[in-house]
Simulated scan of single mutants.
Amino acid sequence: MRMKAHHLAYLEKLMKRTDLSPRSTLILARRLARQIGLARESWTERSSSDRGQAKDSDFRQKPEKNKKIAAEKSQQLLDSLRNIGERILEDDKFLTKKYGFEGLCDILQVNRVHRLEVRERVKHSERLIATLVFVWAFEDSATVLSGRRATELKGGPLYHALMQTLKRAYTREAK
């Protein structure tokens, strides 16, 4: 479900608060990353739509100008997603130590069956979030995986945030 722009701005404002618990911040980061992904899809859709196909009347009237605006907005959202990924990577060791395997699996909504599957393999990981979300793709597996293999899913909000962060890092290295 897509949220209105002012709600997205409110989530971004909440992320800047310093009085939230680390657990609340992680939950908020997941929610924000999910909504940013949905908003990016919407802006990308707008920027690529033809003059006659645009649903928004403003986009039909000034397609070139509005395509540019949509592309800029999509880029801003992508930057926000990357910032979330960077923050997750920075806090991963701390959160792993603070909440442990079961606590992070609860926050990330990892299915109990999948927990059994990876528990021994990630036993000594200092970065459980990156491991569970990016390597194993078990984020939200309790609600959306339902019989599919994790490699088919790779679509959780933190997965996309971490992927964009890695893309940024590789792009910087390539320059």
Rank of each mutant, 00 (worst) to 15 (best):
78 L>I: 00
78 L>A: 14
78 L>H: 05
79 D>H: 12
79 D>C: 02
80 S>T: 03
80 S>E: 05
82 R>W: 00
82 R>C: 04
83 N>R: 14
83 N>G: 11
83 N>W: 04
84 I>G: 05
85 G>H: 00
85 G>P: 06
86 E>F: 13
87 R>C: 08
87 R>W: 11
88 I>P: 04
88 I>C: 04
88 I>W: 00
89 L>T: 03
89 L>M: 08
90 E>Y: 10
90 E>W: 13
90 E>F: 15
91 D>Q: 15
91 D>F: 14
92 D>V: 06
93 K>L: 09
93 K>R: 11
93 K>H: 08
93 K>G: 00
93 K>N: 04
94 F>S: 12
95 L>C: 04
96 T>I: 14
96 T>W: 11
96 T>Q: 07
97 K>N: 10
97 K>T: 13
97 K>F: 09
98 K>W: 08
98 K>H: 11
98 K>Y: 09
98 K>N: 10
99 Y>S: 07
99 Y>Q: 04
99 Y>E: 02
99 Y>W: 09
100 G>C: 12
100 G>D: 07
100 G>W: 02
100 G>H: 07
100 G>K: 05
100 G>R: 07
101 F>K: 03
102 E>H: 15
102 E>K: 15
103 G>I: 03
103 G>V: 06
104 L>G: 00
105 C>M: 04
105 C>K: 03
105 C>R: 00
105 C>T: 07
106 D>F: 11
107 I>V: 15
109 Q>Y: 13
109 Q>N: 14
109 Q>M: 10
109 Q>G: 03
110 V>K: 01
110 V>L: 01
111 N>R: 08
111 N>K: 12
112 R>D: 01
112 R>Q: 09
112 R>K: 14
112 R>I: 12
114 H>W: 09
114 H>V: 02
116 L>I: 10
116 L>C: 08
117 E>Y: 15
117 E>K: 15
117 E>W: 13
118 V>R: 04
119 R>Y: 06
120 E>G: 12
120 E>H: 10
120 E>L: 14
120 E>P: 07
121 R>I: 10
121 R>Y: 06
121 R>H: 07
122 V>R: 07
123 K>Y: 12
123 K>L: 11
124 H>Y: 11
125 S>L: 08
126 E>R: 12
127 R>E: 12
127 R>M: 11
127 R>N: 09
127 R>T: 13
128 L>R: 07
128 L>N: 03
128 L>P: 00
129 I>N: 02
129 I>Q: 00
129 I>G: 01
129 I>E: 04
130 A>F: 13
130 A>G: 08
130 A>R: 10
131 T>S: 12
131 T>W: 10
131 T>Q: 09
132 L>H: 04
132 L>C: 05
132 L>S: 00
132 L>D: 02
132 L>A: 02
133 V>A: 08
133 V>D: 00
133 V>E: 03
134 F>I: 02
135 V>K: 14
136 W>N: 06
136 W>C: 02
137 A>W: 06
137 A>T: 05
137 A>Q: 14
138 F>Y: 14
138 F>A: 05
139 E>W: 09
140 D>H: 10
140 D>V: 01
141 S>N: 04
142 A>R: 14
142 A>W: 09
142 A>T: 11
143 T>C: 12
143 T>I: 13
143 T>N: 12
144 V>A: 08
144 V>T: 12
145 L>P: 00
145 L>I: 10
145 L>D: 03
145 L>H: 10
146 S>K: 12
146 S>D: 13
